[in-house]
């Protein structure tokens, strides 16, 4: 009788342990941060946009090299130019290695940000930075893949601004999402993150 109770107790403990491990990995502290909010890998995305030179671009344009991608709009007086300046500084610090890094600014305001507008805007920053625009449904498709959001906010006199996800997305050369960099993150944190994403590619190339 005692023996049966003991087995039942061990069995129950095992079930609880299994449940706990499951919870830990799926919903608990052991889970990936913000499940469902993490960007998809570039290989799982489908979108077709136009770069600053009028060329068609898509996920395949990015896969093969590590990528730094962020959303914004050229009518943005503060965060977007600040992010572009920060990124220019990071690229300067990384030096010649940065040539292997896709760095792309994607507009969430395609109505105003035409190919010409994007071309002019990015020309004021680091030459490595590209500017992509496209049809509204394609912008929506890429934002959805990145789990990024944006919305139009009407102001006075017919003016409007855009709220949008402000972080910089980092992908390795295989298109896997590595991490984000906050737009105001100091350079001493941002640059090592970029180098890490670039290293993933070196390791893969060597193996």
């Amino acid at each position: 009788m005692m023996r049966v109770a003991k087995i039942a107790a061990i069995g129950a403990a095992a079930v609880f342990a299994a449940l706990f491990v499951g919870w830990w990995q799926v919903d608990g502290p052991g889970a990936d941060s913000a499940p469902g909010k993490r960007s998809l890998p570039l290989t799982a995305m489908e979108f077709s946009l136009t770069d600053q030179d009028g060329r068609d671009v898509g996920p395949e344009t990015l896969i093969g090299e590590p990528s730094l991608v962020f959303f914004g709009f050229t009518y943005c007086p503060d965060v977007c130019p600040t992010t572009l300046s920060d990124i220019s500084g990071w690229l300067d610090e990384i030096g010649p290695d940065a040539e292997d890094l896709n760095t792309v600014f994607i507009t969430v305001d395609p109505d105003r940000d035409t190919v010409e507008a994007m071309a002019e805007y990015v020309s004021y920053f680091h030459p490595q930075i590209q500017g992509w625009t496209g049809l509204p449904d394609q912008i929506a498709a890429i934002a959805d893949g990145f789990r990024a959001t944006y919305e139009k906010v009407e102001g006075e006199n017919g003016e409007y601004t855009m709220n949008h996800t402000a972080g910089v997305f980092l992908f390795d050369a295989t298109g896997r999402f590595v991490t984000t960099i906050d737009y105001h993150e100091p350079r001493e944190f941002a640059v090592p993150k970029i180098r890490r994403a670039m290293q993933n590619r070196t390791e893969r190339a060597e193996s």
């Binding site: 909010k37 943005c76 007086p77 503060d78 965060v79 959001t149 944006y150 906010v153 006075e156 006199n157 601004t161 709220n163 949008h164 996800t165 402000a166 972080g167 984000t180 906050d182 737009y183």
Partner: peptide, 17 residues
Amino acid sequence: MASIHETRTNSDGVSIM
């Protein structure tokens, strides 16, 4: 039209002006 604006980032990482 000159005014002071604040940029904030909410818990979802969305920048709001």
